[in-house]
Design a protein around this nucleic acid. Structure first.
Lengths: 189, 189
DNA sequence: ATATAAATTGACTAATCACTCTACAAAGCT
DNA sequence: AGCTTTGTAGAGTGATTAGTCAATTTATAT
C-alpha cells in the first residue's frame, strides 16, 4: 500500500468536492489513513501536493492518449482516436478530468513552470502540425486548430456529464460530434 | 462613489489573481478603500460576495448579448452576433470572462440555486431551439448544439488571449471561426 | 547483532482570517 | 431641533490550519 499514491488519490476527490482551500491537509491525511506528518514528509507544502497531482493526472491522460493515437493508421484515424478516447477517459474518470480544468482556472496554474505547460501543448500541436502542412486541415494557425478541437472535447464532456446517457447512446453521440468536428476542420476537396 | 460596487470590482480583480480563498476579505476592503466592517455590512458573508459577483457578471454579459442578438434580422445574423460579440466582450473584459469560468469550476457553483442556473441556460437554448425546429441546424439535441457553440467561444477566447493579435487580425480570425462553427452546425442543403 | 537511514506519528505553534461588536457619524424624517 | 435609521470604522475574537519537531518505529546495510 503506497502512501503518497493514496494521499494523491484522496486529495483529488476532496479537491473536486471542496476546492483546494476548502480542503485542509489534515483531512487529506486522515482520510488517506496517514498522519499529518507523513503527508508533509512526502510533499513539502500543500501547493507542491496540488501541483504533483496535476502533473500526475495530466501525464496519465497524455500517456493514455498518445497510446491510442498511435494505434491509428492514417491521420484521420489518429485524430478520431484522440477525440473519442479523450472523451472516453473523461467519462470514465470524471473527477480527474474535472480536476484538470479546475486547476487550469486556478492561480495554482502559475506554479507550474511555463516550460512544462509549453512542452505538453507542443506535443499536441506537433501532432496536428503535419496535417495542416499536408493540407488535410484548413490553412489556419495550428494553435487555433488545436484549441478548437480541444474545446469541442471540453464541451462534449460537459454535455455528457449533464445528460448521463446510456453507453450506446453516448458512443453514438461522440461519433456524431467527431464527424462534426472533422468536417469543420478539414479542407474541402 | 458606490461602495458595494467598488468592493465587487476590487474583489473581481483579486479573485482572478489570487483565487477565492487566496484573497482575504480584509484585502478586498482595504483596496476598495472601505473598512472591514463596511464590507460585511453590504455582504453578510464572503461566499455571498462571491455569488453576488457571479450573478452580476453573468447578468451583464447576458444583457449585453441579448441586446446584440436582437439587433440581427435573420437567424444567422443573430447567431453570428452572439458568437462575435461574446468574443468581443471576452476580449474587452478578460478578467470578467475568466472569472465566470473560474467560478464555474469551483465549489462555489453549488451555492447558486440550480433554478438560477437552469433559467440562464434555458434562455440560451430557447434562442437556438427555434433554429433546430426550423431545420436550420442539424437535427441534434439543442443542448448539444448550445454546448458545442459555447465551447467554441471558450476555445477562441483562450486562443485570442494567448496570441494577443492586433484588433484587425483578431476580428478576421473571429469571423473565420464563426464560419467554421456555422458550417459545422447547419443542415447541408 | 549493531548501526544507520528512512518512515511515521501526533501534539504543538504561529499565523491567518472570516466575522463580530461597539462606537461614532451622516442622512432622513417629523 | 430632536429622533431614528443607515453607513462606516477598526480593534478584537475565536476558530482554523499549514507546517514543525522531537520522539518512536520500521527497514536496510554491514
Amino acid at each position: 500500500m503506497n502512501k503518497p499514491a493514496s494521499i494523491l488519490s484522496v486529495a483529488l476527490k476532496l479537491f473536486v468536492q471542496y476546492g483546494f482551500h476548502g480542503t485542509p491537509t489534515s483531512k487529506i491525511a486522515s482520510e488517506a489513513g496517514v498522519s499529518n506528518g507523513t503527508l508533509f514528509h512526502y510533499f513539502k507544502t500543500k501547493d507542491e501536493l496540488v501541483v504533483a497531482l496535476y502533473n500526475q493526472t495530466k501525464e496519465e491522460l497524455n500517456t493514455y492518449l498518445f497510446e491510442k493515437i498511435n494505434q491509428g493508421e492514417v491521420f484521420k484515424d489518429k485524430f478520431r482516436n484522440m477525440f473519442v478516447y479523450s472523451l472516453k477517459w473523461a467519462v470514465a474518470r470524471p473527477e480527474e478530468f474535472f480536476f484538470l480544468q479546475q486547476f487550469h482556472f486556478s492561480p495554482h496554474l502559475a506554479l507550474v513552470p511555463a516550460e512544462d505547460i509549453a512542452k505538453h501543448s507542443r506535443q499536441h500541436t506537433q501532432f496536428l502540425e503535419g496535417a495542416v502542412q499536408a493540407g488535410i486541415f484548413k490553412n489556419l494557425p495550428t494553435e487555433l486548430i488545436a484549441t478548437l478541437a480541444w474545446s469541442q472535447i471540453n464541451g462534449m464532456y460537459e454535455f455528457l456529464v449533464k445528460c448521463d446517457l446510456c453507453a450506446d447512446k453516448q458512443e453514438q453521440i461522440i461519433n456524431e460530434a467527431f464527424d462534426l468536428t472533422w468536417s469543420m476542420l478539414i479542407n474541402p476537396q
